[in-house]
Computed example of a mutant assay.
Amino acid sequence: MQALNFPKYSFRFKNSENKISIFDTIRKKFVVLQPEEWVRQHCVQFLVKEKKYPKSLVNVEKELKVNDLKKRYDIVVYNPNGSIRLIVECKAPNVSISQSTFDQIAQYNLVLNASYLMVTNGINHYYCVMDFKEKCFLFLKDLPDYKL
């Protein structure tokens, strides 16, 4: 797999039926290693190890409904009170981050109401904080570390 713009992390892999899988520490199972999954697993490690988000507040690949359509978010980080702190949209490294990527995460946030948004393809990372009063997001240089 391609080198990404994240710190180096160690992962568990297994090969089964000629498919390589990577162990997801959040879902506690092996998942098929695809380019987007490679980015997602690096991002989870980044959030837990660098930004100090508790693993117990991180959720990966769950379904949500947006305008009666079933969608799946990549990563959500909760606050201890159950509200959502952060949504992360992961793309494969060969996928450019475009306006449609931001539109996608903004649509998810209409339902989830997260305070922060992150979009990454493993190479480029974009961080935003929501301004609910003005109904827009403001770009940040970095994602804040976890604090209670």
Results as ranks from 00 to 15, higher is better:
Cys43Ile: 00
Glu36Gln: 07
Phe6Asp: 02
Phe139Met: 10
Lys133Val: 11
Lys8Ala: 11
Gln45Asn: 15
Asp24Tyr: 07
Val88Glu: 03
Pro80Trp: 01
Lys62Phe: 06
Lys8Asn: 13
Gln99Ala: 07
Pro144Arg: 02
His42Leu: 08
Ser83Ala: 05
Val60Lys: 02
Arg27Cys: 02
Arg72Trp: 05
Gln104Lys: 01
Glu63Met: 12
Tyr116Gln: 02
Ser100Val: 10
Arg40Ala: 04
Leu140Lys: 10
Lys51Gln: 06
Tyr9Met: 06
Pro7Cys: 03
Asp24Thr: 04
Glu50Leu: 04
Thr101Ile: 03
Ser100His: 08
Asn94Thr: 09
Cys136Trp: 01
Ser83Cys: 02
Glu37Ser: 11
Phe102Lys: 14
Val76Phe: 01
Gly122Cys: 07
Arg85Asn: 11
Val88Asp: 03
Phe30Glu: 08
Leu69Lys: 15
Lys71Gly: 00
Ser83Glu: 06
Lys147Glu: 14
Val32Ser: 06
Leu4Ser: 06
Gln41Met: 06
Lys133Gln: 11
Phe132Asn: 09
Arg40Lys: 14
Asn5Val: 01
Gln2Trp: 05
Glu63Gln: 15
Ile75Lys: 09
Met130Ser: 09
Arg40Glu: 04
Cys43Leu: 09
Gln99Glu: 11
Asp131Asn: 12
Asp131Ile: 00
Phe23Trp: 13
Gln45Ala: 14
Asn18Lys: 15
Asp103Lys: 09
Leu138Lys: 14
Lys133Ala: 09
Phe23Gln: 05
Gln2Ile: 11
Pro54Arg: 03
Leu4Pro: 05
Ile22Val: 15
Ser21Ile: 00
Asn81Pro: 02
Glu37Pro: 12
Phe139Glu: 13
Tyr78Lys: 09
Phe132Cys: 03
Val48Ser: 10
Asp142Ile: 04
Val88Cys: 07
Lys14Val: 08
Gln45Trp: 09
Asp131Arg: 04
